[in-house]
């Protein structure tokens, strides 16, 4: 490599490096330092693991943490279950003329901000909402039922918010799936179940895993939907972090929680990759 090329490379790579350093590495380092510092009883700040001790000693924290992890995995799985048939239908069943149209149709809701979409759901579901109104009008119910603020509604909202991020990788991987493979499996004696399990899903695995990683991380780090649709009962770990930073003004505790969430998401994704025998490099291609 000659001198001018090296300079050229440096100029192009510099913005990325600055971006990484200033906006990601530095704040994270600062957070890490904050997480391992706490006030002692004399009000002096020093090295301490007290923030982490609080997490394990207070059940509310680690229970919310576990609940967030379990629900995120569940949401990821449900998103896959719902999106897979949709993606299959768009790529393999419908005539090519409608494929683009249907894809745009599924993307359309995502032109609206998440906040607006969640409020849309609230208008539908709340006690005085549209669904309750129709249920009473049609005589199915005689008094309105609160459909919001429970785990099922929260999960539904999270699945709805995440669908796009699962759909896009699935569409692209299914697009590449040769129809002849499905026909060959059918010809060799496969039925719908065995073709799905033995041919389609293994073929789509890289897409499924990459979609799942995105959905899982977005769900785990989501603040808006669990807060608005889950209400008081729908505790989410991001709310705990928010409370520490904003309500309690305990930045050290908040940083520790943030780090725990980072470790959790990394660990679950690592386990997921190991279980499906995929490598991160291949999945994010």
């Amino acid at each position: 490599m000659n001198k001018s090329m090296r300079w050229g490379l440096l100029i192009f790579i510099l913005p990325v490096l600055v971006w990484l350093l200033l906006l990601i590495v530095l704040p994270q380092v600062d957070m890490a330092i904050m997480a391992i510092r706490a006030d002692n009883e004399f009000g002096e700040t020093g090295f301490s693991l007290a923030n982490f001790r609080v997490f394990f000693s207070e059940p509310i924290y680690w229970r919310t943490f576990a609940r967030t992890a379990i629900f995120s995995v569940l949401v990821t799985f449900l998103t896959f279950l719902i999106t897979m048939p949709v993606a299959f239908y768009i790529t393999k069943v419908v005539s090519p003329r409608f494929q683009g149209f249907l894809t745009v149709l599924t993307l359309l809701p995502f032109w609206v901000s998440e906040l607006v979409r969640v409020y849309g759901w609230m208008i539908l579901l709340r006690e005085s909402g549209v669904i309750n109104h129709f249920l009473i009008k049609s005589g199915i119910l005689n008094k309105p039922v609160e459909l919001l603020y429970n785990d099922a509604t929260m999960v539904m909202g999270l699945v709805y918010t995440s669908m796009l991020f699962m759909l896009v990788p699935l569409l692209s991987v299914l697009e590449n799936l040769d129809n002849n493979l499905i026909e060959a499996a059918y010809d060799l004696g496969g039925n719908v179940w065995s073709i799905t399990v033995k041919i389609i899903i293994p073929y789509c695995l890289p897409g499924i895993v990459s979609g799942s990683i995105v959905v899982f991380m977005l769900t785990l780090g989501n603040y808006l939907t669990p807060n608005l649709m889950g209400g008081k009962n729908g505790l989410w770990f991001t709310e705990q972090i928010y409370n520490q930073f904003i309500a309690s003004f305990n930045w050290n505790q908040g940083s520790a929680f943030g780090f725990l969430l980072l470790i959790l998401s990394s660990a679950i994704i690592w386990i997921g990759l190991k279980l499906t025998r995929q490598s991160l490099g291949k999945v994010v291609q």
Binding site: D178, N180, L181, E183, A184, A185, I199, P202, Y203, L205
Partner: peptide, 10 residues
């Protein structure tokens, strides 16, 4: 099949 349709993941 014309393109043989061997299952690439197996």
């Amino acid at each position: 099949f014309q393109n043989l349709a061997l299952f690439p993941m197996m």
